[in-house]
Amino acid sequence: MRYRIKKALIVFASIMIALWFLTPVVLIVLASLTPSSEYYDPHKILPTKLTLDHLYKLFVVLDGWQATLNSLEVAGVAIGLSFLIGLPAGYALTRFVFKGKNFFRLLILLTRSFPALVMAVPLVVLYLKIGISDTLFGVALAHTSMILPFVVLITSSILAGISVEYEEAGMIFGLSRFQSFLKITLPLALPGLAASAIFAFIMSWNEVFVASVLTLINRTLPAHILNTAIASPDYFKFAAGTVMAVPAMVFIFFTRKYLVSMWGISLK
């Protein structure tokens, strides 16, 4: 009897949690598909028919399509750069013992509490000087500096999970250290690295402050939304919110195995 009550309580709590976290997501997707006439009809809570009109307008009329492409470009460049720069550092942190290692780790951790807006404004001035103001590349560079510490820590933790003996076996049996990393360790680390790349993507895809400050015309999707949403009709807001949310949610679905460990690291 006691066991059944406990079970019922768990089911009830699970439902409440699911409702709490899912309802807003479901509602915004629903709202983005609701025709304007039905949305403004106070007697209809749920729409009787669905439309892709708003999404179409967002993408085509309101330049959402260009902004999405911009976001993808920024994220792509930022991920590429931060892995290029950060992976060697992550490797050094796991595979070598050297002086100043702990200091370096601490330094990386500290950057996580660095307010993004302190970085953004001086970069506007700097970018004007070196001629990359209002460019996507400039935003990507700024995003790289946010993602890079995460990539260093996460790759170091992923590589730590792959026994150094695999790599050493490679070196014993005829590979150089670099070859051994490339041919033995990297393939083994790939699933984890892919998951962390997705996390890096979400960081960049969602970032709004720096992107808004650094650009006027070439805006990423969240920056574009932030600066046009207030003056736009409601349906635009819903469509925008949906477009922002869905890719991130799909990506996180593929990385759910790594959820706890990665966010744990990215937030520490």
Binding site: P24, L27, P222, A240, G241, F251, R256
Partner: peptide, 21 residues
Amino acid sequence: LYIISIPLALSDVSASLMSYT
């Protein structure tokens, strides 16, 4: 656990738009 982690993927922009909905 997965449902709880959904907001992790969402930006402040989309979360506020959901709230607005």
